[in-house]
């Protein structure tokens, strides 16, 4: 009898702890800091600059969320995660959100109990080889030694691609992008494979970038996006609509330059007014201030500005918008309406 009471009390304690942990928005506000999981270092996407500050395309999402929730884009504790540690870090509550070029897949969404809140980069897996090898297609890679980051979807895509095409290969599993780069440059592997954006970023950091070529084959769909834990829909909404605000702002022509002016008074465009909080109560519905989107956009501008600044064609990484252009200019980016 006593034992039952005891176990029951434990169960209640455990349950209440679980529920308390589920209100991430309140936790973040109480803590005054957003714990955001990022990559350990991928040029353009998440890296520390000369001053030790985190910069990059994925980092910008963390900063926008921190600005929207805490009104302070620097109130972020960046937690570097590897392909292996990222999901455990998120599931255990060590981080509130993960913005680390993570592919949205069925099993991660359903079986691992995460919520992908959107897609901030449409990617695909590619191959990089040295020009010296004279390879022009991935189908010519029979017998090659391939460096691959372990614990990623690319590992499974690679196995499938070579099996389907009846090619043999020798996988060299590697923990981080930096190790892969070292092995690849030393010629310990012929090929480095990861998401095409990651390849472009890695190649940009080579001294002899021109001697390496990214093969034309893209062997998988890799929709990359931020994710949060399953079951906390309020927090999921905050992150989702912050990302959507960045995307919608580009479509509506709201930039870091004109956001303050547009937010000062209601203008002609009702959607801009709703987005910037000069009309309606969208911020309140999220449990945030009315000008949450203004704060998010003031950090480094809209999606297009973030893209151009970190990984666009003017940067060493030099990625074209391609699939990541707005739907109005032939891309796939399409934010649901702010209404």
């Amino acid at each position: 009898m006593k034992k039952t009471v005891f176990v029951g009390a434990l169960a209640v304690a455990g349950l209440s702890a679980g529920i308390a942990a589920a209100d991430t928005l309140a936790d973040v506000q109480a803590r005054g800091k957003l714990n955001c999981g990022v990559a350990t270092g991928v040029p353009g996407f998440a890296y520390t600059d000369a001053n030790g500050d985190w910069q990059g395309f994925d980092v910008a999402v963390c900063r926008a969320v921190a600005a929207a929730v805490l009104s302070d884009p620097t109130a972020v504790e960046f937690v570097p995660t590897t392909g292996k540690t990222r999901f455990t870090a998120l599931a255990s509550g060590e981080i509130d959100m993960l913005a680390r070029n993570t592919t949205w897949t069925f099993s991660r969404d359903v079986d691992l109990k995460f919520d992908f809140i959107g897609i901030n980069y449409y990617d695909g897996q590619g191959f990089m080889v040295s020009k010296e090898l004279g390879v022009s297609s991935a189908k010519e890679l029979d017998g090659a030694t391939v460096c691959i980051q372990t614990g990623t979807t690319t590992e499974l895509n690679l196995a499938d691609f070579f099996r389907i095409n009846n090619l043999s290969y020798e996988p060299v599993p590697i923990e981080t992008n930096a190790e892969a780069q070292q092995q690849y440059l030393a010629g310990a592997c012929d090929v480095y494979t990861t998401d095409a954006s990651g390849l472009a970023a890695t190649r940009a950091s080579f001294e002899d970038a021109a001697n390496h070529v990214i093969l034309p084959e893209i062997i998988s769909k890799e929709p990359l996006g931020p994710l949060v834990r399953h079951g906390d829909n309020e927090w999921g909404d905050v992150v989702r609509w912050t990302l959507n605000a960045l995307i919608a702002a580009e479509e509506l022509g709201v930039t870091s330059a004109n956001v303050a002016e547009l937010a000062s008074a209601a203008g002609n465009n009702p959607e801009i007014n709703r987005l910037l909080g000069t009309e309606g109560t969208l911020g309140e519905m999220l449990g945030l201030d009315a000008d949450w989107a203004v704060k998010a956009l003031s950090v480094s501008g809209n999606y297009g500005e973030v893209f151009e600044k970190n990984i666009g064609e003017t940067t060493p990484i030099g990625l074209a918008r391609g699939l990541n252009a707005q739907w109005t200019s032939g891309g796939l980016l399409y934010s649901p309406p702010f209404r």
Binding site: G14, A17, L158, E170, P173, G231
Partner: peptide
């Protein structure tokens, strides 16, 4: 067990019989 139940996960070893999907050198 309680925390796993809260996360909606159950303990089981059935997944070990699924295809691994990756290669080993």
């Amino acid at each position: 067990l309680v925390n796993l139940a809260v996360q909606g996960k159950s303990i089981g070893f059935g997944f070990l019989s699924d295809p691994a999907g990756y290669d080993i050198n």
